[in-house]
Amino acid sequence: MDNPMLPPLPDMILEPLVRAALMEDLGTCGDITTRSVIPADRRYAAQLRAREDGVISGLQIAELAFRLIDPGLQIRSLSRDGDAIGAGAVLMEIEGAAAAILSAERVALNFAGRLSGIATLTAAFVARTEGTRTRITCTRKTTPGLRLVEKQAVLHGGGHNHRFSLSDAILIKDNHIAAVGGIRPALRAVKSRASHMIRVEIEVDRLDQLAEVLNEGGADVVLLDNMDSATLCEAVAMNGGALVLEASGNMTLERIGEVAATGVDYISSGALTHSAHTLDLGLDF
C-alpha cells in the first residue's frame, strides 16, 4: 500500500502523543531496570523487525520515540509507512546508547504494532473492493487521544478518512432525527442554520426514508445503515447518482465484496480502528 503522495505528519503534531506515552511508561523514576543492569556507556545496535506479514504504519512515531529519549541515536528506516512487508523484514535499524534504546522500545513497538494492525486490516478491506468504484472509510470509533494517528494508519492501508470530529461536517443520525421529530424537520433546520461551506450527511435505514431525503433536498451524502445487499441495490437505483451513498453497519471483511458490488460510493467500518489485530513487531539486539 505504498503511497508516495501521502506526506508524513509534522513531528510537532505527533510529539505530544509520543511524549505522553513515554512519560506514562517511565513513571516517576524512569527505567529502573535498565539503569540498574546496563552500564551508561554501553552501546548497541538493534533492529525493528516484522514477525508477520502486513502493511506498516507508525514508523515515523517509533523513530520519534527513540529520538525523544536520546537525540543522539543513529536511526535508519528501511521501510516507509504504507509499505507492504513480509515476516522477518527489517524495518528500522537503531544504534547508540543501549539504555536509551531499551527505554524507548515498548512505546515505539506499541505505536507501530497498533497502527500497522489498522493499516493491515484496512488493506484487506480495500482488496475486497477491487474492480468496483467503492472506497473504504473509517469512522470516529477510535482510541481516545489517538484518532489522528489511527486515521493516518487507515490512509497507509489504502483507505479513506471520514470526519475527524463533530466539527468537520454535519452527520444527522437516527437519534437526531428522533429528537427533532423526523427527517424533514432535521433537514430544514440544517438548511436554515448551517454554513454553506459545510457538507451534510443523513442516516437512513429504510428506503422510504431515502425517498424522503431525495424529495426534501439539503443533504450531500446519505448513510445507508444496516441494509442488506438487495436493499442497498435498490437504494443505489433510487438515488440515480444524485447523492453520495455510504453503506455502514455490520461491515465484516467477508461481506465487503458483496456490498461494494451494489454500487455504493463508500463503505464505512468502525472495525478498521476498534477491532484491528496488533501486528507483531519486535526489537532485536
Rank of each mutant, 00 (worst) to 15 (best):
G181F: 06
E246Y: 07
G145T: 11
V149C: 02
G159S: 02
S229W: 03
N250K: 14
T252N: 12
R163Q: 00
G182W: 10
A271Q: 08
I75S: 10
F164S: 03
H196P: 07
A112I: 06
I85T: 00
S192I: 10
D228N: 15
K191N: 13
V221I: 15
S167Y: 13
G113D: 00
V222R: 00
G88S: 06
G96L: 03
Q47S: 11
L102E: 05
V200P: 02
V149M: 02
G117D: 04
M227T: 06
M227Q: 04
V213H: 03
D81Q: 02
I38E: 07
G270M: 12
C138E: 12
D11H: 13
L14F: 05
I69W: 04
T134R: 00
A124M: 14
R51I: 14
P10E: 01
I85N: 00
D280I: 06
M1F: 05
F111D: 04
G263C: 06
I183D: 05
R140C: 10
V37D: 10
V55F: 03
A20G: 14
D53P: 01
Q60D: 14
E254V: 11
R67S: 06
V190S: 12
G270R: 09
P71L: 09
P10T: 07
R35S: 15
I183L: 13
A219M: 01
G54P: 06
D228L: 11
I56H: 06
E130A: 15
G218T: 01
A237Q: 15
R19T: 11
T252E: 13
S167K: 09
E130Y: 08
G182F: 08
I198N: 14
L207C: 08
D205N: 15
L91R: 04
S275R: 14
R193Y: 14
L6T: 03
G218N: 04
S116Y: 10
M12A: 15
L171T: 11
A219E: 02
D11L: 15
L109W: 01
V18E: 00
A260N: 04
N226H: 08
L102Y: 04
V55G: 00
R184G: 03
A271H: 05
E254R: 12
H274Y: 12
I170H: 00
D41S: 15
A211W: 02
S229H: 08
I170K: 01
E246F: 08
S103T: 14
D228K: 06
K173N: 10
K173I: 11
L207V: 05
D11V: 13
R135N: 08
T132L: 09
A247C: 00
K173A: 12
H156A: 10
G117F: 07
T129S: 04
R43N: 12
R51P: 05
G217F: 00
E24S: 13
G249K: 08
A153Q: 01
R106F: 09
I56K: 03
V259H: 00
